[in-house]
Write a protein that binds this DNA or RNA. Structure first.
Lengths: 141, 141
DNA sequence: CGCCCAGTTGCAAACGGATCGCAATTAGAG
DNA sequence: CTCTAATTGCGATCCGTTTGCAACTGGGCG
């Protein structure tokens, strides 16, 4: 299954005319395997585990390219770092555990709809949005 | 009315036991008058217009203090800079005009409620949240 | 099959926002 | 008025990100 995703991402790159170089191939592999929302440093670490010698600047540049192509999504959470995830077919929002930093995805049709409604009321058109719920595991009960 | 707010903020500081120094007095004045969501550089600029010589590090430090005391709210929008606004009595969210960067506030009870609902479903307790709608003025109609 | 060059990379320097160490200053309690 | 802890200005520093540049290379074309 990871394999399927991987192929898709790599092929998407080819279609966009991006050169498939050694470093890039590894970065795509790492991105395809990622189930979370790693920052650049973390991506670089994972890449280095497969193929040392890839410079972090290359990771930055590749992420910029992929974001421009719409193949991945870039987030900036409260810590200010850039984080990435493969572009999902349908948009989703995020829970962020304030203690562990762990990110969980969710989607609410109702919230999506309400946002549109409110924007319209104000005379706006939504270009994109960001909803992050900073949470902790429900204690007690 | 600005006067009323100003007094409140300054008095709140006194109550918290913060020393009211020259620089601080000016920063509080600027914050009280602000209707928008300035970043530190902008705050510093406004402060300097009233009283030159206040160092930007002082602005940073003061904002940190005020945030810790819960007197102001700190935001990090997509541009990654720290932005501030006076702590509102009731929470609100933001529209951000993608072209001008202008920030407009709104509040939706329904969305607030839905967030709680969803968090509960996932077994979380919401500590805080952030909802930003990046928009442009509705064209056409 | 090899040439060629625009795209890509590694490296180091630069950048920009935010923070910090330190010595000098000062608010404000007693 | 005094005394001390809080605050300030200043410069250095941090850290994530970007950039300039020379070397390298993928992959289209002959």
């Amino acid at each position: 299954m990871t394999r399927a995703k991987q192929k898709t991402l790599l092929e998407a790159c080819r279609q966009q005319g991006l050169r498939i170089t050694g470093p890039r191939r590894v970065i795509l592999e790492v991105l395809s395997a990622a189930e979370d929302h790693p920052d650049v440093e973390e991506l670089h670490r994972r890449v280095a585990a497969i193929e040392p010698g890839v410079n972090i600047a290359t990771v930055y540049r590749t992420m910029t390219k992929l974001t421009e192509q719409g193949l991945i999504e870039r987030h900036v959470f409260e810590d200010g770092r850039l984080r990435f995830e493969r572009a999902p077919e349908v948009h989703h929002d995020h829970f962020i555990d304030v203690e562990t930093g762990k990110v969980v995805e969710f989607r609410s049709e109702e919230i999506e709809r309400l946002q549109e409604e409110i924007a319209e009321k104000y005379g706006y058109e939504i270009v994109s949005h960001r909803l992050e719920l900073y949470v902790r595991p429900r204690s007690g009960s």
